[in-house]
Nucleic acid binder design. Sequence first.
DNA 1: TTGTATTCCGTAAATTTTACGGAATACTTT
DNA 2: AAAGTATTCCGTAAAATTTACGGAATACAA
Lengths: 258, 258
Amino acid sequence: MNSEEEVNDFVKNGHQQYLPHLSIDSVIFGYHDQQLKILLLKWIGLDGWGLPGGFIRRREPLSQAAHRILQERTSLEDLFLQQFHVFGDSPYRLQERSAREFTEKYGLVVGDDNWLFERTLSIGYFALVDYSKVSVRTDFFTTDYRWWDVSDIPPLLFDQNEVVEKALATLRLQIYHQPIGLNLLPEKFTLAEIHSLYETVLGKELDQRNFAKKLVSLGLIKKLAEQRAIGPHRSPYLYQFEKEAYEDALKQGIVHTY
Amino acid sequence: MNSEEEVNDFVKNGHQQYLPHLSIDSVIFGYHDQQLKILLLKWIGLDGWGLPGGFIRRREPLSQAAHRILQERTSLEDLFLQQFHVFGDSPYRLQERSAREFTEKYGLVVGDDNWLFERTLSIGYFALVDYSKVSVRTDFFTTDYRWWDVSDIPPLLFDQNEVVEKALATLRLQIYHQPIGLNLLPEKFTLAEIHSLYETVLGKELDQRNFAKKLVSLGLIKKLAEQRAIGPHRSPYLYQFEKEAYEDALKQGIVHTY
DNA sequence: TTGTATTCCGTAAATTTTACGGAATACTTT
DNA sequence: AAAGTATTCCGTAAAATTTACGGAATACAA
């Protein structure tokens, strides 16, 4: 959505194509080189940063909408995307405050009754990707983007700081239960790679040997016969996710026996 | 909503009061006497059973809407109600198939463009209550209700069987993490009471002594000095939930250290 | 040949979870 | 009053899991 014509059509007629009152907010965790970051977009006019998001087409399954929105923004497909909460306790979470402000900021003439000004509940999704491989697409409303360190998130639009916090909590809670990381690591990876991913996401150190034992005993990864030559003195064994275990996990999560 | 006038107004003008395209479905688990049941309503006209639910008022916080809907239906207030998933992958989850069928069934004349016929996503909530203490209120659309055993749920409207399954899975997963049961047991309860509650919900036997040790060591319950006289040979000690631990749990869940 | 960086294990201790039975109490019945 | 019965109340030993921790072997570089 970049040309003025497209934007105009979206603002004026979007309610015909999309479900009103509902949006999807995506918390895209980007991991690379021992750093966990979140993708934020800068909205023109507003001085704030916000989460990438979008609307659900009227006849589009919800999860498909979440994938489409993420794909449009990052070009990433087939990600593990997880719905984690609906935010709707701030009933006045409006996209803008008034038609006049909107006109001033974007130069688009709209009525006070425009669909974008109505109350919007937001469905939160999160994903974990390798941010060095993502090329972010901006658009008319969001001309800039940046990956922010999770420990240093700026004040966000609306209640989105709460959204990010809840996403992070859910990510950490589920990292041993859901195939988070499947889209992140290469198909074959070393212990060191997955180990530092987990350390970074959880924000704490994990004993290497015990970590490997645990993941193998949970059946999530298996050791391959191959080694990778990555330099002098370095040819660690490769590991791979256990496909079946992951598919089970995708369906039902890994259930604990209490 | 019982009088014809009220119903008419709801059907014709509900979209002015409520957010369209969104509903709340409540899975109300009822426990009593070692049995775990679910409250289902029988819809007139349709031959199916369905979950109690409702709509969100245009300026009403989401969680407040969930409480209101439950309260209107059961008279229960201040419950622990937990949002667990948004269902929106069946894009054609319509309330009815057509205006004509609607008119035939309910004797109300409506247009094909009525708000009730539009696509509706549903936000699932669940609660756990003592079903012997609930007096269910029916209305124009739902003239009958029944508590069904969880192992014997009939085919439900739309995709609601999936909703129930997911609610049950979430309930079991969270029973040691969230203050489920807080609204269920009396303020002071015996070990036998909470023990059989957990056994019933989880659908398996739990060793009494270990169970008590675990709940106490988790800090969820504490033993009181009082005993309860419930009959010959019977005056077990009473236990109580640890208020602070529960409040923490309410806020963030009880987090495991992996 | 020596030195250095890197990978690869395995075991002992601590903790947690599980399994399991018998003693004491208080009332009821005879 | 005594014996019987139903109920509550522990505690410990074994098993499983989790945690802590260091040294030997390898492969290249100097």
